[in-house]
Design a protein around this nucleic acid. Structure first.
Length: 502
RNA sequence: GUCCCCUUCGUCUAGAGGCCUAGGACACCGGGUUUUCAUCCCGGCAACGGGGGUUCGAAACCCCCAGGGGACGCCA
């Protein structure tokens, strides 16, 4: 039997996500338990959203958690390159095969036509999908359009009737009618492949034997299987893991729960505890032990023990487990090392010190003044938000609008944060000192402190958002109705152009 | 709207037809240890979504319903 090979294939379009680490963990355990290999591939075919920065962050975060790989863009390996943006020629050669065999076709439809089509289908309560317009084009017409350099995509042909039946390792037989499957775009007009195409080609060329991925991919598995069939390749075994959930059971999202691995690092969780916690999402040790290392997990691993109900990511239990790790696994010396590394990161410290250097008279003033930099959520109460000019609702409004605006910042910079606060102040027609008041309480815990704008910048989006959200909760939270009103205000704010300074 | 997946305490879960009066853990509540607190120890609360089958026997197998979730992009 062929050597087991599994992979994690993150897309470098944002912060390193705990869901990525979760799937990586199970892939790695499965591979290692079978003395196989676990590889990392970067799926950066979305040119507009992928960044090198994000790729670096993801690799760093996975390494921090102890999830290392046998082959990958940084360590190399015999099946490279491991970055899809460097494999364009491979995809182009493969798409030609499908085109020649008539298993795929060129589509010249414009985005406008497709949008209109989707709208009308949705209005008529039909399942949205491509209508086969360009399927009717003759060979000559296609050649002519291509010669004229008209932009086009390549779509796959899909059987019109019958079912696609496949076996999921955890769920058994799954049957999906072909008529449910859209004529998926395989190659975009920028001549880069879509996920579905690149993923199948790479999984085959990289000799992946087991595809362990999130449940959200079940419905597109027929597309993938069809490609394997067209190429005459042996498909891997599929195994769809349950999705991590928010407390309200929806798919884990940063809007509702911190999802960035760096957030958990910044909050002072130990990587061993986080990875252990992820290991108990949908899985248990055969002997019921709850505290286990990644090595213990992989040696006792049994993928068939995965339970399928979507587990809620419950920070309270993570807190307990992290405390247990600190108490039981760190002696004083280890603790000193871990704490120093966490608290006294040189880059961070050298950003913080200039903010307080001129405000202290004794070095002993530093901790009282800057302690909030080395904290998680702050112990604030609604009384702290009492203000002579701002009502509690005003505070909530400012806090919520700030959260939303921070989330939409194209890049995290001090200037961006400042601009945003200035604009908000002008838009609300509240002086900047008042506008910043609730932010001071939420972010620094006090009405008087070092610059709150710098503080947010240094703390980062995740911790800032967590504190702002915590403050909103303290103030009674935002009801459905309030949220709706505030979203309307947000739209006005987005369209608001700051008056030019006189 | 269409399709797919899922369903045991509030949460993570054990459970492969009789071992289930459903077990463990977090959270919560009580008690003990501790100069306080935390830790630690002891105890308590709390669940098989509903309805039909199959079976001597169902949390487990089958069907229907309900609920939850996901997918339906030139995103991944």
């Amino acid at each position: 039997m062929a050597k087991v090979r599994t992979r994690i294939a993150p897309s470098p379009t944002g912060d390193p996500h705990v869901g990525t680490a979760y799937i990586a963990l199970f892939n790695r355990c499965f591979a290692r338990q079978h003395e196989g290999e676990f590889i990392l591939r970067i799926e950066d075919t979305d040119q507009t959203r992928s960044t090198a920065r994000s790729e670096q962050d993801i690799l760093k975060a996975l390494r921090w958690l102890g999830l290392d790989w046998h082959e990958g863009p940084d360590v190399g390996g015999p099946h490279g390159p491991y970055r899809q943006s460097q494999r364009s020629d491979i995809y182009r050669a493969h798409i030609e095969v499908l085109l020649e065999n008539g298993q795929a076709f060129c589509c010249f439809c414009t985005a406008e036509r497709l949008d209109a089509l989707r709208v009308s289908q949705t209005e008529n309560r039909q399942t949205p999908g491509y209508d086969g317009h360009c399927l009717l084009l003759s060979e000559q017409e296609v050649q002519k359009k291509r010669a004229e350099k008209q932009p086009y995509v390549v779509r796959m042909k899909v059987p019109e009737e019958g079912d696609c039946v496949f076996t999921d390792r955890l769920r058994g037989e799954i049957r999906i009618a072909w008529e449910q499957i859209d004529m998926q775009v395989l190659m975009k007009s920028d001549h880069l492949p879509t996920y579905h195409f690149a993923n199948v080609v790479d999984d085959h060329l990289m000799e992946i034997t087991h595809v362990i991925r999130g449940e959200e991919w079940i419905n597109s598995t027929p597309k993938h299987l069809l490609l394997y069939q067209h190429f005459g390749w042996q498909p891997p075994q599929f195994c769809h893991m349950p999705l991590l959930r928010n407390p309200d059971k929806s798919k884990l999202s940063k809007r509702k729960n911190p999802t960035s691995i760096s957030y958990y690092k910044d909050m002072g969780y130990l990587p061993e505890a986080l990875i252990n916690y992820l290991g108990m999402m949908g899985w248990t040790m055969p002997d019921g032990r709850e505290k286990f290392s990644i090595e213990e997990m992989q040696s006792a691993f049994d993928i068939d023990r995965v339970s399928l109900g979507g587990p809620v990511f419950d920070v309270e239990k993570l807190d307990w487990l992290n405390g247990k790790y600190i108490r039981e696994n760190l002696d004083v010396e280890d603790f000193v090392a871990a704490f120093s590394q966490w608290a006294f990161d040189p880059v961070r410290i050298s950003r913080i010190i200039p903010l307080l250097k001129d405000r202290v008279e004794r070095l002993s003033d530093v901790i009282p003044l800057a302690g909030f930099f080395l904290s998680g959520l702050l112990p604030v109460s609604d009384a702290d938000f009492k203000h002579k000019q701002l009502t509690s609702d005003d505070c909530k409004k400012i806090l919520q609008l700030t959260v939303w605006q921070l989330e939409q910042l194209p890049e995290w910079s001090r200037e961006g944060v400042e601009q945003l606060c200035q604009t908000l102040s002008q838009f609300l027609d509240i002086r900047i000192r008042e506008t910043l008041f609730p932010l001071f309480i939420a972010i620094t815990g006090k009405a008087v402190s070092t610059s709150v704008i710098d503080a947010m910048f240094i703390l980062g989006l995740d911790v800032s958002r967590a504190r702002l959200r915590h403050a909103i909760d303290i103030l009674g939270g935002v009801s459905k109705k309030e949220a709706k009103d505030l979203e309307r205000v947000l739209r006005e704010l987005e369209n608001y152009v700051r008056p030019v300074q006189a």
